[in-house]
Amino acid sequence: MSGWAVLGSLPFGVLCAWVLARCQFPGKGLFDGIVHLPLVLPPVVVGYALLVLLGRKGVIGGWLHDALGITLIFNWKGAAVASALMAFPLMVRAIRLSLEGVDRRIEAAASTLGAGPFAVFLTVTLPLTFPGLLAGVILAFARSLSEFGATITFVSNIPGETRTLPIALYTLVEVPGGEEAALRLCVISVVLAFTTLFAADILARRIDRRLKN
């Protein structure tokens, strides 16, 4: 579920980061604010907003259901949407930072060598942004693993469908005799977090070595 959330939002994240890093337009501050909104709003508010917008009777949710036959509410897809939205600002920030660090003259050099704007983006900008992209993905992945508030508000707590790790943990703690299972989930959560960080670190090092060697 987290994987889908991250993969699905990645192209939008890159796009938003690019717009924020490179474009100047009126209302940019507002756009920046909207992108960052999920970071500062209480997660429950985001979940409720999603419920209103994407629910079967919601403006977007109704259309999705009628036109495309997609229902988001009370299933894992909805959970993915909720956690993607919550993780989005973190991803955008990381990618934007590394986009701003890319030397524009290297891009200019590529364009004088015959590469069109899209080719420059694919062959130069994106590879040079890769460390930031990776950081953004890891952050977003970790954030969506720990998603609780928006998910439980939007898609509720359905075992095997929308129950994220923290929601499962919460459920176990609420039930008498669930301590042992809860502890197990805690361990899993820690192992998962460590593995992700380690994998990210190893990857980042390898990229760094490639650039320097």
């Binding site: 030397d103 003259r105 290297i106 200019a108 050099a109 590529a110 364009s111 004088t112 060598l113 015959g114 590469a115 069109g116 704007p117 080719a119 420059v120 062959t123 130069v124 590879p127 040079l128 490639r210 650039l211």
Partner: peptide, 28 residues
Amino acid sequence: PPHRRRVGYIFQESCLFPHYTVRGNLTY
């Protein structure tokens, strides 16, 4: 646009592509 001008540009700093080898830079 720059990519249609067929004008080679050598900058003050070399501005090579750090993620390509020398060969990759040359053939770009």
